[in-house]
Simulated scan of single mutants.
Amino acid sequence: MEGVMKQMDIEPSLIVDIELSNSESNRLFNVLKPVVFVDDRLFCCLLGPDLRYGVKGFGHTPEEAIEDWEISVMKRIKNPFENDEVAQYLHASLNTSMNYAAAG
């Protein structure tokens, strides 16, 4: 299941370009590469095919949305849906990243 996660089509003008430092606290964001965009009056951080099945976080700032998303990632890994391809992708991507970091 590792590879590229199908992302929801988002109007390019709504996407917020975010670059975070490579610190350990930003590891989930840097490894999984979700998209951050404006959704009505809030920012949304999303990884997945849509808002229903994807992992999402919301906030009044991009940083708040990313923090909320990181919490959602951990919850989704611990409590996946039945046949949850997004959770499988999260688990595989994070395991690969940890194995790569340990080998380096």
Rank of each mutant, 00 (worst) to 15 (best):
Gln7Gly: 01
Met8Ser: 08
Met8Lys: 11
Asp9Leu: 14
Asp9Lys: 08
Ile10Val: 15
Glu11Pro: 00
Glu11Arg: 04
Pro12Ser: 08
Pro12Cys: 03
Ser13Lys: 03
Leu14Phe: 05
Leu14Asn: 05
Ile15Ser: 02
Ile15Gln: 11
Val16Thr: 15
Val16Ser: 09
Asp17Glu: 15
Asp17Ala: 13
Ile18Asn: 02
Ile18Met: 14
Glu19Val: 10
Glu19Ala: 07
Glu19Leu: 06
Leu20Ile: 00
Ser21Trp: 01
Ser21Met: 06
Ser23His: 03
Ser23Asp: 15
Ser25Trp: 04
Ser25Arg: 11
Asn26Ile: 00
Asn26Pro: 00
Leu28Glu: 03
Leu28Asn: 05
Val31Pro: 01
Val31Ile: 13
Val31Gly: 06
Leu32Cys: 02
Lys33Val: 06
Lys33Leu: 08
Lys33Gln: 15
Lys33Gly: 05
Pro34Thr: 06
Pro34Tyr: 01
Val35Phe: 03
Val35Met: 06
Val35Ile: 14
Val36Gly: 04
Val36Lys: 01
Val36Gln: 03
Phe37Ala: 13
Phe37Val: 03
Phe37Cys: 09
Val38Gln: 13
Val38Ser: 10
Asp39Gly: 02
Asp39Asn: 12
Asp39Cys: 09
Asp39Lys: 12
Asp39His: 11
Asp39Ala: 08
Asp40Ala: 14
Arg41Gln: 13
Leu42Tyr: 14
Cys44Asp: 10
Cys45Tyr: 04
Leu46His: 08
Leu46Met: 09
Leu46Glu: 12
Leu47Cys: 06
Leu47Ile: 09
Leu47Thr: 02
Leu47Pro: 03
Leu47Arg: 03
Gly48Asp: 07
Pro49Thr: 11
Pro49Asn: 02
Asp50Arg: 06
Asp50Trp: 10
Asp50Tyr: 05
Asp50Cys: 11
Asp50His: 08
Leu51Asn: 14
Leu51His: 14
Arg52Leu: 13
Arg52Phe: 15
Tyr53Asn: 14
Tyr53Glu: 14
Val55Arg: 06
Val55Tyr: 04
Lys56Ser: 14
Lys56Tyr: 09
Gly57His: 02
Phe58Pro: 01
Phe58Glu: 14
Phe58Gly: 03
Gly59Ser: 08
His60Val: 07
His60Tyr: 11
Thr61Leu: 12
Pro62Gln: 11
Glu63Met: 15
Glu63Trp: 06
Glu64Gln: 14
Glu64Trp: 02
Ala65Ser: 06
Ala65Trp: 01
Ile66Glu: 08
Trp69Ile: 01
Ile71Cys: 12
Ser72Leu: 08
Ser72Gly: 12
Ser72Cys: 12
Val73Leu: 01
Met74Pro: 01
Met74His: 13
Lys75His: 11
Lys75Glu: 15
Arg76Cys: 12
Arg76Asp: 07
Ile77Pro: 05
Ile77Cys: 10
Asn79Trp: 07
Phe81Ala: 15
Glu82Tyr: 12
Asn83Ala: 09
Asn83Cys: 07
Asp84Tyr: 03
Glu85Trp: 09
Val86Tyr: 10
Ala87Leu: 07
Ala87Pro: 04
Ala87Gly: 10
Gln88Trp: 12
Gln88Thr: 12
Tyr89Gly: 05
Tyr89Ala: 10
Tyr89Thr: 05
Tyr89Lys: 03
Leu90Gly: 05
Leu90Ile: 06
Leu90Arg: 01
Leu90Gln: 04
His91Cys: 08
His91Gln: 09
His91Leu: 13
Ala92Trp: 00
Ser93Pro: 00
Ser97His: 07
Ser97Glu: 13
Met98Trp: 13
Met98Asn: 13
Tyr100Ala: 13
Tyr100Met: 14
Tyr100Pro: 00
Ala101Asn: 12
Ala102Val: 04
Ala102Asp: 13
Ala102Lys: 15
